[in-house]
């Protein structure tokens, strides 16, 4: 099963996604539990964010897998059959694939799509956190426009694959696709 969780900044989507995967796993008995971390630890603000997320999931049984780019390889190398994976988050993964040296660049959409397919082929359940950056004009920045376009296409492809899509609005789950 594939659950996609979206929401704005500070909306509580991470907390919701974490509770969701823990609940789903508890309902199934066992299986490895992975936290696939995509954030590139550069700069103080990002480090503080990573720390806050680490604190939030401490002691809950997650094995952290660092994945900046190449979700497909990551899934094949690190994930066991029948496991549970929380991917956080697709916007970082998209930015990494677009801008990092080892990223897929023009092939970002396909790389992430293949990555998710690979992950779903080994894991029993995947919860992926994404976000919504679409409700604003990108101004004069061509780069922002490009990111918005690529990321929008990725989100649409993910939602098509997903069994369930939920938007978290100030902590309240709103069903997008049941």
């Amino acid at each position: 099963m594939f659950y996609l969780v979206t929401g704005g900044s500070g909306s509580g989507k991470s907390a919701y996604a974490e509770e969701l995967i823990l609940r789903l796993r508890a309902g199934c008995g066992d299986g490895d539990l992975y936290y696939i971390a995509t954030m590139d630890p550069v700069g103080g603000e990002t480090m503080r964010k990573i720390e806050a997320h680490r604190r939030m999931r401490a002691g809950k049984g997650f094995q952290t897998i660092e994945c900046r780019t190449g979700l497909a390889e990551c899934a094949r190398e690190h994930c066991r059959k029948g496991s549970f994976a929380l991917v956080e988050c697709l916007s970082n993964l998209t930015a990494n694939e677009l801008y990092r040296e080892d990223g897929a660049k023009e092939g970002t959409h396909d790389a992430i799509l293949r990555g998710m397919e690979a992950l779903l082929s080994v894991c029993r359940t995947v919860v992926a956190v994404t976000n919504d950056v679409s409700r604003e004009l990108p101004g004069d920045s061509r780069e922002m426009l490009r990111f918005q376009r690529v990321f929008g296409q990725i989100n649409a492809s993910m939602a098509r694959m997903a069994d369930c899509v939920t938007e978290v609005v100030y902590g309240i789950p709103v069903e997008v696709k049941g």
């Binding site: 704005g8 604003e136 990108p138 902590g171």
Partner: peptide, 28 residues
């Protein structure tokens, strides 16, 4: 709901928008 746009370049704007989200999540 101000949190659904592109991540702002200005650090204050980023902090502001996340703060509104956190406060409203608690109040909701």
């Amino acid at each position: 709901e101000i949190g659904c746009g592109l991540v702002p370049i200005d650090p204050f704007d980023r902090m502001y928008r996340e703060t509104v989200g956190r406060i409203c999540t608690k109040l909701a």
